[in-house]
Amino acid sequence: MRRALAILGCTLAVAGASGAAAAPPTPAPETRGRALYGQSCATCHGQNGEGSPRGPNLENSGAAAADFQLSTGRMPLPHPGAASERRQPAFGPRDIDALTAYIASLGHGPAIPVVSRGDLQEGREIFVSTCAACHSGSLAGGTLSSGQAAPPLLASTPTQIAEAIRLGPGAMPSFPRGVISDAQVNAIATYVTSLRPQLDHGGAPLGGFGPVPEGAVAWVFGLGLLALFIRLIGKRAP
């Protein structure tokens, strides 16, 4: 129950934070966002989000995409051509909200989804049937074709999970409401956040990578220790 409340609290906190992006805390976040955009984004995405050979058009990408890319640290790229992967965000939450508000003001893109607590069991069912093939049942992520990978979900916030489901960033498919309903998105986010503390049930989880590290442990710490033991108690010279 305490865990459930903690998750609920966490979910609400994140939802509150993203709500703040829609209802600006400072008089003109777009202005502040525009300044930040000019410093950090315009080189690739153009002065007004119109895009350039180095980066795509952002006019209709919307708040959800901006929030996802910025809050997971995928954008801005540390250098052109860097892989799009989770990093420490370059901006603090207020700056992200400002940038998101600015990019949302450029056109008509999807807003940041509001996530609330969903049904845990339904979340498990959908996650296993739809998400685990790429992200792994253990949230460890997975290998795709052509050197691409599905990222681990060990640090994603419920809002980021919802954004990714709706937008399909990178190689990921997108799932509109007709395929995964809002309630189901809530359920998935709830499941993922509640699974994380269970991942080490039973001991060191070995990265969630399954039988490969398990086999290595069995050889090194299982048979290895025992081989050492028999070497100690047996004679060495043939």
């Binding site: 093939a133 290998t143 074709s145 052509s146 399909g168 498919p173």
Partner: peptide, 19 residues
């Protein structure tokens, strides 16, 4: 195995068992 990995931009379906 279920070919559960869909790489949307490349229009590829990938099998997680033997790639």
């Amino acid at each position: 195995c279920p070919v559960g990995q869909y790489v949307a931009p490349a229009q590829q379906l990938v099998c997680p068992c033997h790639q």
